[in-house]
Amino acid sequence: AEKTGIVNVSSSLNAREGASTSSKVIGSLSGNTKVTIVGEEGAFYKIEYKGSHGYVAKEYIKDIKDE
């Protein structure tokens, strides 16, 4: 099942092309942005936001229960 997560940073969080800190940054998400978690790979979540996919470090995403 898809989960919703909240970007848990004070400034912004980089979204990357792949599940690695050396992957190209494809965008950034500001704190408290809601994202859909579609998968996980190592220390990263694969997320969907406004129709695009990217990878973000798990430690900066807070899971919330689907309402």
Rank of each mutant, 00 (worst) to 15 (best):
S52I: 14
I26L: 09
S10Q: 12
S52A: 12
A1D: 08
G51S: 06
D66G: 10
E2A: 15
K65A: 10
D66F: 14
Y49I: 08
V7Y: 02
I64W: 08
I6W: 11
G51N: 08
L13T: 10
G42W: 01
F44E: 03
S52M: 15
N14R: 10
R16Q: 08
G27I: 11
D63C: 15
Y55D: 00
D63E: 14
Y55V: 00
I64V: 13
E2L: 15
A1R: 13
H53A: 06
T21I: 14
T21A: 13
N32R: 08
F44D: 05
K62R: 12
K65P: 09
Y49N: 00
I26A: 01
N32H: 10
D63F: 14
F44S: 01
N8I: 13
K3E: 02
V9C: 15
K46R: 08
R16T: 11
K62F: 09
T4F: 13
T36F: 12
D63N: 09
E67V: 13
Y55S: 00
K50Q: 13
A1P: 13
I61M: 03
G39T: 01
S10N: 09
K50Y: 10
E40A: 05
I6H: 06
G39I: 02
S11D: 12
A57P: 15
T33W: 06
E41T: 07
E40D: 06
G31D: 11
Y45A: 05
A1E: 09
V9G: 10
S20E: 06
A15G: 03
S30Y: 09
K24W: 03
N14Q: 14
I26G: 01
V35G: 01
F44M: 03
N14I: 15
S28T: 14
R16W: 15
E40S: 06
R16A: 03
K3P: 02
N8Q: 09
G54C: 12
V38P: 00
K50F: 11
S20M: 06
G27E: 03
E41S: 08
I26R: 01
S10V: 13
N32S: 08
I47A: 01
G27M: 15
I37W: 01
I37M: 00
G18C: 14
E59P: 01
G18Q: 13
S11T: 14
I61A: 01
K65L: 11
I61H: 02
S12H: 12
G5E: 03
S28P: 07
E41D: 10
I6T: 08
I37N: 00
G31C: 14
A1Y: 14
Y45K: 04
T36Q: 08
K46M: 10
S22K: 10
S20H: 09
R16E: 02
E67D: 11
N14M: 14
Y55Q: 00
S23P: 02
T4I: 12
Y60W: 08
G42R: 01
K34C: 13
T4A: 06
V7P: 02
K34S: 06
K62N: 09
G5M: 05
V25Y: 04
S20V: 04
G27R: 03
A57D: 12
E2P: 15
N14G: 07
E41L: 07
S12N: 09
V35Q: 00
V25M: 05
S52P: 00
A57R: 11
S28Q: 14
E2N: 15
E48K: 14
S12F: 13
I37H: 00
I6M: 08
K62D: 10
S11G: 15
E67A: 13
N8A: 13
S52W: 14
I64F: 08
G54M: 14
A15T: 09
E2F: 15
E59D: 08
K62V: 13
S28D: 06
A1S: 13
L13F: 02
A43W: 06
Y45R: 04
G39K: 02
V56Q: 00
K34E: 06
D66A: 11
D66R: 10
E67N: 12
A15Q: 03
G51A: 05
S52G: 15
I26Q: 01
N14K: 12
E48C: 14
A15K: 03
S52T: 13
K34T: 09
V35E: 00
K24T: 07
V25F: 05
E2H: 15
T33A: 08
S10L: 12
E40M: 07
N8S: 11
V56R: 00
D63G: 08
S22W: 05
K34I: 14
L29I: 12
K50R: 08
Y60D: 09
D63P: 10
Y55F: 11
K3C: 14
V7G: 04
Y49A: 00
Y45G: 05
T36R: 14
E41K: 07
I64P: 06
V38T: 06
G27S: 03
T36E: 03
E40T: 06
E41Y: 09
S12L: 10
